[in-house]
Design a protein around this nucleic acid. Structure first.
Lengths: 201, 201
DNA sequence: TTTTATTGATTGAACGTTCAATAAAAAAAT
DNA sequence: ATTTTTTTATTGAACGTTCAATCAATAAAA
């Protein structure tokens, strides 16, 4: 049923199918035939639209990171020049946004995370994202405390966010986003306890 | 050069070779030939001693978790019935013990972590370890605060430890164990700030 | 001579990629 | 309106590669 303008549709279908396949059987067993099956198309189409399996995997990781960046940016945009606490809170909330914590996305992200250790292209994407989280946090903490302390706070909070996320991905019941969000906010409150008088949830 | 009693020697060599291979090229490209090459033996020997590649991978993960458990237990044994803070500090230090933060071990652990999402045998091992960390932390916090608060504290600290560890594994320069240890202790100090008067480093 | 340890060529299964063939829609021609 | 032509999208069998596992052959120690 070929129509014109299928490219953006198929690309999106295949990226979603990739996450579904990884969620189902893991990255190692996510073959092109299985991925194509999830999208209801044949295996050959993957090479046609993405140049090969690697291209599809890279596009999938890029999509996940873009969605995360958008979720954070959207929450911060409405804040203007609010307090550092509000901005950091928005970064936390963005990281536990719905689009990031659904089962397929969570498992896919963790799979890419591990894979990025040995695939330069994925490693690049992963590091860009990592540094964005860290430097966003750091520049906000910097408004409240000296540089060394701000760096420590940013490292600790970034690690806690990633850790909550990681543990959630491994839990059979999936990540409890609300509980994780609360733990991260508690940690933030403690970090700011010395620099502000009225913590907010 | 066959001698008697080679089994324990070969098993240990092959487990170390597995970590070296995963550190070198990742779990996906750690073939039996490459692993055997690292140990200076032929590929067939893997099936002979471990029943197959899967058996070797499981034994490798089990070894890593056992080493971690030992590192924590050794530090706690000398504590007797010291303060909860001391015990939790020992758990933190054990998790950032030298044997856990060397490059090969760190990367291997993260690789297994991702893989355990879809391999029941690895998942079992991983969950046993996870719950051990959580319940050890929880029972110590429980001596200082009500159950609900203790659970929160344990979840937050466990996530921070895993997160620091995860971020360290991905960093090209490897995990800075001393820096990570300090961050975790800072977090612990904050968690205990309301329940004790004299924090120690 | 017997036992134990090890090899490595072989086997069969599974994978990603390719590409000639096909089918449907769109455009052009009648 | 129909028919024909062109364009676009898609298929899936075939191919070459790679892998883990096997096992008869071998070699060293006991």
């Amino acid at each position: 049923m070929p129509k014109v303008g299928m490219e953006p549709i198929r690309r999106q279908q295949l990226i979603q199918a990739t996450m579904a396949a990884i969620d189902e059987v893991g990255l190692a067993d996510a073959t092109v035939i299985r991925i194509a099956g999830h999208a209801g198309v044949s295996a050959g189409i993957i090479s046609h639209y993405f140049g090969g399996k690697d291209g599809l995997l890279e596009a999938t990781m890029r999509q996940i990171l873009t969605d995360l960046g958008d979720a954070v940016a959207a929450r911060r945009r409405s804040l203007g020049d609010a307090s550092p606490r509000a901005h950091i809170g928005a970064i936390i909330d963005g990281n536990f946004d719905r689009s990031q914590v659904s089962g397929p996305v969570a498992k896919t992200w963790l799979a890419f995370w591990a894979s990025s250790m040995h695939k330069p292209q994925l490693q690049r994407l992963q590091q860009v994202n990592d540094r964005r989280l860290y430097s966003n946090l750091c520049s906000q903490f910097r408004r409240l405390m000296p540089r060394a302390k701000a760096r420590h706070a940013a490292q600790g909070l970034a690690a806690t966010i990633d850790g909550l996320w990681l543990r959630g991905a491994l839990t059979p019941e999936g990540l409890d986003a609300e509980s994780a969000r609360r733990l991260a906010h508690d940690y933030l409150n403690q970090l700011l306890a010395n620099h502000e008088s009225t913590p907010v949830s």
